[in-house]
Write a protein that binds this DNA or RNA. Structure first.
Length: 756
DNA sequence: AGCACGCCGACT
DNA sequence: GTCGGCGTGCTC
């Protein structure tokens, strides 16, 4: 089956000019408008199930449905559900996937034959096809677009690589297996082991409210859903780390438990560094990385405990190899980045998304699916358990908890206090006590924390990313300025003194601050970065390590436990052996400034990520939040209460009618086209339209949100209960005629993260 | 008549 | 998206 799979053409090479048989014309009748199907009579169809139902890869919403083709005898055996084919579509050759074989077609016209069977590998098995369909409907997109995200590009050489036997001769064994606290301690259950027979050793999960029950249910095949807020690992002052309760060890344990029950597991993480971190924990838990070979040992241990890493970063060959290993069932555990959310995992028992609030989990290609949503849909479609996890708590996850769809899993307050570092907020109020000396951006208290920390080990300094964050705020009290009508952020075009809402477009000529009644607005533009240099100069006898995507040394994964200043941008914080003695989170005002819905959540997530690398308060760990940050966010960190922040944020979203309390769809395109779509769309009850507003700033700046110059954007929102209807109606509207007549295409983006 | 262009509709 | 059909309008 890995041979020269079906490469023979379905018909002799031909084009319109190659003398194909013309359809007979009736005298006196107008010539048929449609070109005759080329070669329709030139092939013999398969005897058994001669019809293939195909989803074609065309990017047009209006054409997004299945099409029936004839299966030529020559492909009778190879064409099965999920295989890639080439078909004639209109006047062009396109790629497609066979969904099923049928005895007859409901199509009235004549069927054209499949042109080519690309490969017999069923890369879009039924479960994947169903998932793609569901995701497409949820996001009002085309199945074809989703399939393109779900199935990696084919790599023919990889497909032809020899199978498992070769792995025996390489003689690789699971590394670290023997010294793992969770090494296999008996005959490992193979893929066919009876479900639910394995004992559940929940390990550190038993210390969490709801933790053990979640794992037990997941292992028994129940579709339980949990939202878990993780705590920092148990760093110790001596520089050693207890190896079994960092988040990666916890996830590895969950993987192992569900895997031992005979089911597959899928874990999706934001980036390659997190995948690496989990990889190491899986290795320690007695699982084996089978990515490089794409195979596992052909014995029970290998088959039961192999996992593959599925990352676009790894390149096309490696990615396809890992995909095939999962597809063929050689590995039943898949870990990877966002596209892995679609990975074919047989008998999926548990899907995990780590740090579900990380923006990297949001796909940037249409129809912009989010990993958390894909896995949630998967949980419903495949009946698998779902774990939404992170150091923080997304508003969306909180909504799942509040609605009762998911259970909360978390540690008791006492445990939180025992694990978290002490967090001090050095805000304007704090700093003011220092009097005139507080002019410096780094107050003396922060210098002291850094100095004392350096005596005990490495000190992390988190600096907001370089660049500018445009904020409009009250000129008097600095409260961010809201639209009086819809609470969107007010923008201020340069040269103009009339603020305009960036959501609904209304002019707020007579704006006054609801807090202090000031009437002036200021644009706040803050840069940062030189702070790190200042620090370096201040501690001349201490090594300074810099970690950041744009820094010379790139992103560091780890640093030693030796005293050093480690300056990092958010997301690039190295893990320190034994944990950091202290951390300074600088420019808190910049970190929490922003006009987007997720600004607060982003800030607290970045801070939690850094702070979780610091030793607990009981071991002297201290975190200083330096600067004039949002009090709510700062308070959430000080109390180490991300769930509380999310809960409060959700209250606010409910009150203001913002996602995830409502569902929204953004329509972007030329004004005429957007208006035409809106006019032709029958909106669900309770739906409202914001805008349209130009996506190009009035001051001639670069277009935002990926729009073309002159494009506008309208936001349509509807109560969550009408979400499906909203998606369906917008989809119909965009697919309809209006979009085309209005000269220009309208793009639809459901559940946009930022309404600006 | 013959050709360039643009609009429209079809695509199994 | 991409193509072909057919109408329009222009030119020789």
């Amino acid at each position: 089956m890995t041979g020269p799979a079906g490469t023979e053409p379905a018909e002799p090479a031909q084009g319109p000019a190659a003398g194909e048989p013309d359809q007979l014309e009736l005298p006196g009748m107008p010539a048929p408008r449609r070109r005759p199907a080329p070669g329709a009579q030139a092939v013999t169809a398969a005897d058994d199930l001669p019809v293939a139902r195909v989803v074609v890869e065309v990017p047009v919403l209006r054409l997004d449905h299945t099409y029936d083709y004839l299966v030529p005898v020559s492909m009778a055996d190879g064409v099965t559900a999920g295989v890639r084919v080439k078909v004639r579509f209109g006047a062009q050759d396109v790629d497609g996937y066979v969904l099923e074989r049928l005895a007859t077609s409901e199509h009235e016209g004549t069927l054209r034959p499949l042109r080519r069977l690309v490969s017999t590998e069923p890369v879009l098995p039924n479960a994947s096809a169903r998932l793609c369909r569901v995701v497409a409907e949820h996001y009002a997109g085309s199945m074809s677009d989703v399939v393109r995200l779900a199935v990696p590009p084919r790599h023919a050489r990889t497909e032809d690589e020899p199978l498992a036997e070769a792995a025996v001769t390489t003689g690789e064994q699971p590394h670290n297996g023997s010294r793992s606290p969770m090494a296999p301690d008996g005959p490992a259950p193979g893929a066919s082991a009876p479900h639910g027979s394995a004992p559940t050793d929940a390990g550190p999960w038993s210390g969490l409210a709801g933790g053990e029950a979640f794992l037990r249910h997941a292992a028994s095949g129940a579709a339980v859903r949990g939202v878990w807020t993780a705590l920092p690992g148990r760093w110790t002052a001596g520089g050693s780390v207890l190896a079994d309760d960092g988040w990666e060890d916890m996830v590895a344990r969950a993987v192992r438990v569900v895997r031992d029950s005979g089911r597959g597991v899928l874990v999706v993480l934001p980036d390659a560094r997190d995948v690496d971190r989990l990889s190491r924990a899986l290795d320690a838990a007695g699982l084996r990385d089978a990515t490089a070979s794409g195979r596992t040992l052909p014995d029970d241990v290998g088959r039961a405990h192999g996992y593959v890493r599925l990352l676009a970063d790894d390149g096309p060959a490696q990615r396809y190899r890992a995909f095939l290993a999962a597809l063929r069932g050689h590995a039943r555990v898949v870990i990877g980045t966002r596209a892995a959310a679609f990975a074919p995992v047989a008998e999926l028992g548990l899907a995990v998304v780590w740090e579900d609030d990380d923006p990297l989990h949001a796909e940037q290609r249409a129809p912009y699916p989010h990993v958390r949503e894909v896995l949630a849909l998967r949980s419903e479609a495949e009946g698998c358990a779902l774990l939404v996890a992170g150091l923080g708590r997304s508003v969306e996850a909180q909504a799942l908890v509040r609605s009762g769809w998911a259970h909360e899993i978390g540690a008791a307050r006492a445990v939180v206090r025992e694990r978290a570092p002490r967090v001090r907020a050095l805000t304007r109020v704090e700093v003011a006590r220092e009097g005139p000396a507080a002019v410096a951006r780094i107050p003396s208290a922060a210098w002291r924390i850094a100095r004392e920390g350096l005596a005990q080990g490495p000190v992390l300094v988190q600096v907001p990313r370089a660049g500018y964050v445009p904020v409009t705020a009250c000129g008097t009290c600095r409260e961010p300025a809201d639209c009086p009508d819809c609470h969107g952020p007010l923008g201020l075009a340069s040269g103009s003194s009339t603020p305009q809402c960036r959501w609904c477009g209304r002019l707020a000529a007579a704006w006054s601050c609801p807090r202090c009644h000031g009437s002036t607005l200021r644009s706040v533009l803050v840069g940062s970065e030189r702070t790190a240099e200042e620090l370096g100069r201040a501690f001349t006898n201490v090594p300074v390590r810099i970690s950041g995507a744009r820094s010379a040394g790139g992103v560091l994964a780890t640093v030693s436990g030796a005293s050093a200043l480690v300056v990092a941008t958010p997301g690039a914080e190295p893990v320190a052996a034994g944990g950091y003695a202290a951390a300074l989170l600088l420019d808190a005002g910049v970190a929490t400034a922003g006009t987007q819905l997720r600004t607060r959540q982003d800030a607290v997530r970045r801070w939690l990520t850094a702070a979780s690398l610091v030793r607990p308060a009981t071991a002297g760990g201290v975190v200083a939040v330096v600067g004039d940050g949002d009090e709510v966010v700062t308070g959430a960190l000080v109390r180490w209460d991300p769930a509380g922040l999310a809960d409060r944020e959700l209250d606010e979203r409910v009150e203001l009618g913002l996602p995830p309390a409502v569902r929204v769809g953004a329509l972007t395109g030329p004004r005429q086209a957007v208006m035409a779509v809106l006019a032709e769309t029958t909106l669900p009850p309770g739906a409202t339209v914001l805008g349209p507003v130009p996506v190009t700033p009035a001051d001639g700046g670069a277009p935002v949100l990926g729009g073309e110059l002159g494009d506008v954007r309208a936001i349509v929102r509807a109560p969550r209960g009408e979400g499906r209807l909203l998606a369906a109606s917008l989809r119909a509207g965009v697919a309809g005629r209006g979009a085309r007549r209005g000269a220009g295409t309208v793009r639809l983006h459901m559940d946009v993260a930022d309404l600006v």
